[in-house]
Write a protein that binds this DNA or RNA. Structure first.
Lengths: 133, 133
DNA sequence: CTCCTTATTGAAAATCATTATCAATAATAT
DNA sequence: ATATTATTGATAATGATTTTCAATAAGGAG
């Protein structure tokens, strides 16, 4: 662990949310102006490989990163994305039913298509309260 | 409708599948070498706006387009994507349950977050039969 | 602590998909 | 047939992400 890496992880943990590389870069820069954008990209990649961060693409052309809170069992969630301001909301309310269905579908698909399924995506898109006005 | 547009639509209808702009470009080129990649992009966009094509992003960094078969009522499907060769499979088998759940979740989310939900994504990712070897 | 080997960094250039520009050409209306 | 508008394609621009590579920082052996 180096200074740059610690700061980058710290920003994603502290600021929370779903930050793009550029947003992380801007935040880290304030405390440590010598960081390069490249290091930010590299570190975010690294932390994603290590399953410390989750990398998402919500369709606005930039990847977004989010801290994985491994120990908290109630952390499993899906996303609700505003296509106007690109804000992202986590929801946990309907997760149980969704997970149940996903598991079932996954089993069916694996068998039928002989796929080794590793991941799934459920997301909702729309306009957030602000952006509807 | 112009020559270029007809050919582009024809390629997506005939070749089927989930083609990227580049793939469409290559196919159209064979019959009509003067087409520009730009026209392909423009036409694919246009046809997507018109709801003739569906545009998807499956996470390999390029958009993919698919014909919408409006009249066939059993066309509603979701996708299974191979993260190695990027091939895409449609499945329709478990759709009914999924749609039911999505509708319910959508209603709940709209109310809770005051979102105007316009779209959703359910996709599965993994390795296809070939790529497992 | 000092030298040495390896890992990490940052600046600048390269990539890749997609978009914008703009003059030339093709369609369509008159 | 001509005027008006829409479509085209070559080229250049964009924006996010990667690569390259020399400079710097870390960590370990003596």
């Amino acid at each position: 662990m180096t200074v740059a890496r610690e700061l980058i992880l710290d920003v994603v943990s502290t600021k929370g949310g779903h930050l793009s590389a550029e947003e992380v870069f801007d935040a880290v820069r304030k405390q440590y102006p010598r960081v390069g954008l490249v290091t930010v990209y590299r570190t975010l990649d690294l932390l994603s490989e290590m399953n410390v961060l989750a990398r998402h693409e919500f369709g606005d052309g930039r990847a977004r990163y989010e801290l994985i809170r491994g120990c908290e069992s109630d952390d499993h969630h899906h996303h609700l994305v505003c296509t106007s301001c690109n804000c992202v909301w986590d929801y946990r309310d309907f997760i149980d039913d969704e997970v149940r269905l996903l598991k079932k579908t996954e089993a069916g698909l694996s068998k039928k298509f002989r796929f080794k399924i590793t991941d799934h995506v459920i997301e909702f898109y729309g306009l957030c309260e602000k952006c509807q006005k």
